[in-house]
Computed example of a mutant assay.
Amino acid sequence: MYISITPQKLGSTYKGSARDFVNYLEKENEGSATQEQELFFSQTENDIDAQRVITEIDANTSKLSKRDPKFYSIVVSPSQAELKHIGNDPEKMKRYVRELMKTYAASFYRDKEITVRDVLYFAKLERERTYSDKDSAVKENQPFASRILELQHRIRAVRQGRSEGNIGKLKERIDALEREAPHKQNGKRIVPGMKKDGHQNHIHIIVSRKDVTNSHSLSPGSKFRTSETILNGERVKQGFDRDKFYRAAEKTFDGQFGYRRNFVETYHARNLLDKNPKLFFATLLGLPANEKQAAKQLLFRAGVKVPSIPTNKAQLAYKAMMKLKKGIGKAMESSTIGI
């Protein structure tokens, strides 16, 4: 399960209103008949229209400064394995998000218990994902894309009489580069904007910075870690426990749908890979044979080149370990493994 939490973008992209962001989330509805459009939902309601989302989020900003995010965006992207396990069922996804938002509320560190009834949020299912410049497949194809673009410019110059050259040979070189590009989908080089194959259901959540009473700030921002401070002479709890939230997110999914999560799919594994790769691989090597084989298959499907998982620590040389770490890290970042 890949989950990201980001603040509203300020400046020239997203201004004070939630309108631009909500309009962006409406992109899959463009050109669709009204009855086929995917509407927003909340903890207790379905079929909420976009204008209501904008109105309620924009109205819930009391005492926030111009430079404060008015809302946060949470993206919930199950992995291919998780989506397959639930049959890519949109209704199961929505039920999961409603349980997830209970854990979101419980992850705030406050003197008073925060529940999902205190949180103002709206969520929307999307069925497609496209490749972006951030995807490793696009990045690794980029040198080939640049050379192809250069050759296309040369062909155009020859046709316009601005340069000399053999157009046929230039086209042959382009065809060769298309074949040599390392990442393809259905025989075509992967480029930004191309739709991703397979199950791609994911959910965007827009959650207000203020609670439903518009009185208290509920910020999950990374700079608001759990801590205590002195306010009016009293010690007050504040912050948001992201570790608690991420761990609870996968535990909620597993419990709700009976999913058996492999070690390499866990949030714990991601933390180990980031902070202690040696322990990550030691744990990987220590898995029972069937779980180790399942881990290898998950990594292979994620595009990580693992010809074989070494049978002991001595076989895993430092250079090989760091190469594997880089590959697994890329797969995690692109949510292919889905931690």
Rank of each mutant, 00 (worst) to 15 (best):
K296I: 05
K330L: 12
A317Q: 12
L287E: 13
K325I: 06
K292S: 11
Q315Y: 02
M321T: 09
L299M: 15
V304Y: 04
K313G: 05
S334D: 15
K326T: 13
A314Q: 15
K313Y: 08
Q293P: 00
V306D: 03
M321D: 07
L316W: 09
L287M: 11
Q315P: 01
P307H: 10
L287W: 14
N312R: 05
L298R: 10
L298I: 06
L324Y: 10
P288R: 00
A294W: 04
A302M: 04
V304H: 04
N312F: 02
L299P: 00
P307Q: 12
K325L: 04
L298P: 03
K292C: 07
K319A: 14
S334P: 01
A289L: 05
L316Y: 05
A302E: 00
K313S: 15
L316H: 07
A314N: 13
A317C: 00
K323T: 15
R301T: 07
S308K: 09
A294F: 04
L298W: 07
L287K: 11
V306E: 04
K313P: 00
S334V: 01
G327M: 04
L316T: 07
F300I: 09
G327Y: 02
G303M: 03
K313D: 11
A294Y: 05
N312G: 05
K305V: 10
S334I: 01
S334M: 08
A314H: 13
K326F: 04
M321E: 14
A314R: 15
G303Q: 07
L287H: 06
M321W: 07
K296P: 00
E333S: 11
K326G: 02
K323M: 08
E333D: 12
F300K: 15
K326Y: 06
A320R: 14
P288V: 06
F300R: 12
K323R: 14
L287Y: 11
N290K: 12
I328V: 13
A314T: 15
Q297F: 06
Q297G: 03
L299V: 02
L316K: 10
P288D: 12
